[in-house]
Simulated scan of single mutants.
Amino acid sequence: MRPRQFDLIAFDWDGTLFDSTAIITRCIQAAVLDVGGVVPSDQAASYVIGMGLMQALAHAAPDVPREKYPQLGERYRHHYLAHQHDISLFEGVLPLLSELKSRHHWLTVATGKSRNGLNEALRAMELQGLFDGSRTADETAGKPSPVMLHELMREFGVAPERTLMIGDTTHDLQMALNAGCASVGVSYGAHEPDAFGALAPLHIAHSVRELHDWLRVNA
């Protein structure tokens, strides 16, 4: 078997594995409307996907006063919970993950979701046993801080040069750059890939199929 280039592969969740970008965008907009803020555009709302929840909402709704942040967060969670079971993995994700697992990569998740949110998504998709580790934004520093990746690398004893981050936002790729890790961007999620180039990803995949093919040869 061909030697691995990467021992640890960290995936973002929303917009990379989970087809949730449109629903998250709409839930952010609905939450801002509920608290009387100026509803952000689709582009502004989708830009913050991947950040920790309150950081994301504050960025998307700069006119909402800080004292309304708890209500804003509650309204976002209300809307998201109403739609979370409408979301599914992107087609092709399960075969991709299964093949990487068969090659004995450590598979992890580094996400802006909360721990409860990620656990619920993993339960809903019946993926609890597939990932070896994970970090969420409410239990450590959010993206683009490198802390999530530093903690995962330390947990599995893997060096930065043997770690690959895969994500759909500039926050993901900047986190990898900050951690000294390689990255791959995917263009089918929250951010337009035009901004990825400055963050030096090894590749930009335009579909899960293309990502799978690239990983088969290069991971």
Rank of each mutant, 00 (worst) to 15 (best):
M1N: 14
M1P: 15
P3R: 12
Q5F: 15
Q5C: 15
D7E: 12
L8Q: 02
L8N: 04
D19K: 08
T21H: 06
I23A: 10
C27Q: 00
A31D: 00
V32Q: 01
D34S: 09
G36S: 00
V38N: 13
D42G: 06
Q43H: 12
Q43D: 08
S46M: 03
G50W: 03
G52R: 07
G52L: 04
L53M: 10
L53I: 09
M54E: 12
L57P: 00
A58D: 09
H59S: 14
A61G: 03
D63G: 12
V64E: 01
P65S: 08
R66M: 12
E67T: 12
P70K: 03
G73V: 01
E74C: 06
R75E: 07
Y76N: 00
Y76A: 00
H78Q: 10
Y80Q: 05
L81W: 11
H85V: 10
H85G: 11
D86E: 10
I87Q: 04
I87P: 04
F90Y: 09
F90T: 03
V93N: 03
L94T: 12
L94I: 12
L96P: 00
E99H: 11
R103D: 08
H104F: 09
H105G: 02
T111N: 05
T111D: 08
T111Q: 02
G112M: 01
K113P: 02
S114I: 04
N116I: 14
N119D: 15
R123G: 13
M125S: 15
M125E: 15
M125R: 14
E126D: 15
E126Y: 15
E126W: 14
Q128M: 14
G129T: 10
L130C: 09
L130T: 09
F131D: 05
F131N: 04
S134E: 13
S134F: 14
A141R: 14
A141W: 13
A141F: 13
G142I: 08
G142S: 13
P144E: 06
P144M: 04
S145D: 13
S145L: 12
P146F: 05
P146Y: 03
M148V: 07
L149R: 02
H150W: 14
E151L: 13
L152E: 01
L152K: 01
L152P: 00
E155R: 13
F156C: 06
F156W: 10
F156L: 07
G157C: 10
R162A: 10
T163R: 05
T163P: 02
M165H: 07
I166L: 04
T170I: 11
D172K: 05
Q174F: 12
M175N: 05
A176R: 07
N178A: 07
S183L: 08
S183I: 06
V184Q: 02
V184A: 05
V184S: 03
G185W: 03
Y188K: 01
H191C: 05
F196Y: 04
G197E: 11
A198H: 10
I204R: 08
A205G: 06
H206N: 12
V208L: 06
E210R: 07
W214K: 04
R216I: 14
